[in-house]
Design a binder for these strands. Structure first.
Lengths: 245, 245
DNA sequence: CGGCATCTTGAGTTGGGTCAATGGTCGTGG
DNA sequence: CCACGACCATTGACCCAACTCAAGATGCCG
């Protein structure tokens, strides 16, 4: 299912008020206080909810840009394509995180976003926020910050891909996931992976066999307990040491 | 020399008017027309010029954020650091390009920018632009676009690092450089590299020896003529084919 | 139950890393 | 002017992490 259709036709009729309770990390999802009220009360923005089934696309390569997307619940992957058909996952997004910044430059998206489980996202009509005038200054600054954060995160991935070994990449990936779950009030030790081994590999610049071997290796070293998609982190410190040599 | 000092003390006294003639690509450097005038006439912004000698830092890891930087002339590299001292160059910036977006989130920079040759940059006080009110809407949208463009470019680098072989990476890097020179009115075939082999390697996720071997290989294949930092592209099509297999 | 996608593991190969030696270039100071 | 040292680049020999190919195992769904 495609967001271009969704935005026009399938707006959740019950979503007249913004429920941000799903994302604990409100700092990321939406700014606190006045700006939030402003969005809802005055301009009735950010009340489009899109319900996605696993496998649905929020937008895809070439889609028109309608706005940014905030994940309310679920898990989203972003895929980029090379000319010759190769695919790379440039990011995974979970509740409270915002994606879709790639569409601003040309009013078209340059990558594809796919739900990895049943998910709910809110569309944030950036252009309306830009037009809102002085009272939205605080809000606009928040979006600059979001984009800046995205750029810094990209730098992290670039360093991971450019100067870390496979072992270190997987350790860093798992620790990052663990931290994000912890930030949302979940256990940082029991991870339920929403993506396949191949998708992890695509994100970390490795083949599926290498990912699988590394999971086995970490398990043998007592760092993890691996049961298909259920990962239990047994030794956080050990994983951290792997990264810092 | 550090920008924190420069901004306070070494503002170019002759820079009372904005000279954007150095960057042909005005679309990137500054928006056209009214917004530009607005910046100069009304608020007297973007008239801080910083003159850098090769090796000078514009800002470094931990510096306070004063604004974005537009390259007027010269060549700037951006370095990121891992805990254990490893370094990766996440980008190179040339005339007309804007860098420094990493500092917005926390009002501190998270990476270091270094001039690779004598350079001139303008500081763009982003916060003042944010505070400017409705008339700056067009201008603000321009900065959203700049950041979006940066994010898309980051995706490109991630794909390069994550799913391309060494040969392809170097070819893609050279073609990108060639294009950017062409955009600025220079020959796309005669490149003068401002960075060392080690810096290319750091950016492309390879060791210096590999970069050197690839240059030799490309030369033997008749794709390039390599004379230390002077690279002549003999077969653009061949380089493009390398990337698309 | 069969069919399909996913994951694991083994065996063999290779691209790029490491280590080491050499040569070139540039700037400084005697 | 040349000598020296610092930095940069190239090339060879060797090695290892990650890739490819292949064979099964596991799990899920109709």
């Amino acid at each position: 299912m495609d967001a271009e259709v969704l935005v026009k036709a399938k707006i959740d009729a019950n979503a007249s008020q913004l429920d941000c309770s799903a994302c604990n990390n409100q700092d990321i999802c939406l700014p606190a206080g006045a700006s939030l009220d402003l969005l809802i009360d005055r301009d009735n923005l950010i009340n489009f909810r899109i319900h996605l089934k696993s496998g649905d696309r929020v937008y895809h390569y070439g889609s028109n840009f309608h706005g940014l997307y905030a994940v309310k619940s679920g898990f989203i992957k972003i895929e980029n394509y090379l000319d010759n058909g190769r695919v790379q996952i440039t990011g995974f997004y979970m509740s409270g995180e915002v994606f879709g910044f790639d569409g601003i430059v040309a009013d078209k998206h340059t990558c594809t976003s796919v739900a990895l489980e049943d998910s709910v996202v809110c569309i944030i009509p950036l252009d309306q926020i830009e037009h809102m005038g002085n009272e939205a200054e605080h809000l606009r600054h928040h979006f600059y910050k979001l984009m800046s954060r995205e750029i810094i995160h990209n730098h992290t991935i670039m360093m991971l891909l450019g100067s870390m070994a496979g072992e270190e990449r997987l350790a860093a990936f798992l620790l990052n996931l663990s931290q994000r779950l912890y930030d949302r009030g979940y256990s940082p030790y029991n991870l339920v992976l929403r993506m396949t081994r191949a998708e992890i590999g695509s994100h970390l610049g490795m083949k599926i066999e290498s990912v699988s071997r590394l999971f086995s290796k970490f398990q043998n070293q007592g760092l993890l307990e691996v049961d298909s998609k259920n990962i239990r982190i047994l030794n956080v410190h050990g994983l951290r040491e792997l990264i810092s040599q």
